[in-house]
Design a protein around this nucleic acid. Sequence first.
DNA 1: CATTGATCATAA
DNA 2: TTATGATCAATG
Length: 225
Amino acid sequence: MYHKPPTTEAQLMTRAVAMSGLTVRQLAEIVSENIPPDLKQHKGWLGQLVERYLGASAHSKAAPDFEALSIELKTIPVDESGTSRESTYVCTVPLLELANVSWEASWVYRKLSHVLWVPIITPPLTALPDRLIGMPLLWRPAAEEAASLRADWQELTDMIALGQLEQVTAYHGNILQIRPKAADGRALCWGINEEGERFLTLPRGFYLRSRFTTALMQKYFQLQK
DNA sequence: CATTGATCATAA
DNA sequence: TTATGATCAATG
C-alpha cells in the first residue's frame, strides 16, 4: 500500500499519527516491503519505508520530501526515554562559491525550516522488526533554536570561505557539525584552500548533534500515544 | 561510552 | 558523480 503525496498538513499528520504505535514489522507489511536482517547494509531502509507510507514525493531529488507542503521528513532513532541515539544528517556542505550566501538562502536553513520528525523507538539491542514508530512532531525552529543554528552555520561557513576546510572537524559547532559524508574514504570532491586554489577533498555534510535532537524530543514530544 | 570519522545502498 | 536515506565502528 502506497499513499499518494499528501496535499495538506492535516492529511500528512493524520497519516503520521496513524502510523505511530506500529512496529517496523507491521509497517513493512503494510507497505509490502521485505525487512532486511539489520541496517548494517541498508542504512537508509527505514527512512525510505516511512517515506513510502507517508507518500513522500521527492525520492532522491534535491527537494523537500513533501514537495507541495515544503516539509522535510526525518526519522530519528531514540531510546525509550526519547534520547537520540544518532546524529541527524541535514545536507551536504557546499564547498565552492559559498561566500556571500545568506543564512536564509542556505541549504541548512531551507532544510530545517519545516521538518516532520518521526521517532523510531529503538532501545539498545532491539531487533529491527520490533522497533516502534513513535508519535510524529511537525517542527519549525523556535527563535532561540534558529539563532543557535544560524550561529553555528555562520562559524562553519566562514571557516570554509576562508579556505580553512581542512581545519574544520566534527568538534566545531554547538548543535550543528560538519563530518564526512561519502561512499568511503576515497570519495573526493573539489574544495578551496587558503590560496583560493581548488584541491581534492572528502565530501562533507552538515549534521545535527544528538544532544540537540534529544532536547527537541524532550521539549516537544510525546513519544507514544 | 559518547563522539567522530568512515561507510553502505540506491536512483538519476 | 551527485543526490537521497542514514548507521557503523574505531577511538579518545
